[in-house]
Simulated assay, not measured.
Amino acid sequence: MSAPGLFISFEGIDGSGKSTQARMLADTLRAMGRDVVLTREPGGSPGAEEIRALVLQGDPDRWSAETEILLFTAARRDHLERTIQPALDAGKVVICDRFADSTRMYQGLSRGDLRATVDQLHTLMIGREPDLTILIDMDPATGLSRALSRKGLEERFESFGHDLQAQMRQGFLDLAAEFPDRITVIDGARAPDAVAADVTTIATARLP
């Protein structure tokens, strides 16, 4: 019988460095001999990656908030079925760049009072939270500057601007206060290695 797996998510505003920290933690745990699956949302499975292209590209007003919630939940369900749960069942560590907390913020909070809708769909179709969520906290202006400097087509949410970044930062901090046993906040306004050291300490303390 396999040892129990561990599900870790990274959250934060765009440009906070969470993707970098997720990769660094995966490398660290692999060096320790752990079997690690590094994945992302939206995406992480073939079907979910197709939905990712729909929701992260194009005009900021392309979809209503309600439609986005349905699309993200559909992508998350496929991701859970095909990538996350099989890895956890095999005793692996799953590290995910964003999970349901991002939908609670970006669709449930920023685009209308739809948090209850997000949570209802999550309970019905997903039914689980990460074992540990690491929230990389970052000044909104700094995060936005970093996000806009990146090359690529997935700029739809960055184009919402500074006000969204500030609202999302506060929303994530409020979420951490709501779920203190699951979400740990780490100051991202430091050198990546310093942030990674804190991330490693927190994550390894949760390893089965």
Rank of each mutant, 00 (worst) to 15 (best):
P86A: 13
D131W: 01
Q57N: 15
L29H: 11
I13A: 14
A22L: 04
L71S: 08
L121Y: 05
I13T: 15
D137V: 11
E50T: 07
E50D: 09
L54Y: 03
P60Y: 07
Y106K: 02
A74T: 08
Q107H: 09
I8S: 09
A90N: 14
L38K: 02
R98D: 03
F10N: 00
D35W: 01
M1C: 12
F72L: 12
V55I: 15
A53E: 12
E50Q: 10
T20C: 13
L132A: 00
A65Y: 12
A53V: 03
P86D: 13
R111K: 09
R82N: 14
D113T: 06
S102R: 00
M24P: 01
P4G: 08
T123N: 11
F7W: 00
G47D: 10
A90M: 08
E81G: 09
D113N: 11
T83H: 02
R52F: 04
F10S: 04
L114K: 10
T103M: 07
S9I: 02
A87I: 08
T133Q: 03
S110T: 11
R98G: 04
G12S: 15
R34G: 10
S110E: 06
L25T: 07
T39F: 00
Q120N: 13
G5N: 03
E129P: 04
D61K: 04
G47R: 08
D89Q: 13
D61H: 03
G127A: 10
L124S: 12
G112I: 14
R82D: 00
G91V: 10
R52N: 08
E68A: 10
V36E: 10
L56N: 11
Q120A: 15
T142V: 14
M138P: 05
Y106C: 02
A53M: 12
M105I: 14
R34P: 10
I134L: 11
R128F: 04
G47H: 09
A53L: 08
P60E: 06
R77A: 13
R23H: 11
Q107L: 13
I69W: 01
L29T: 12
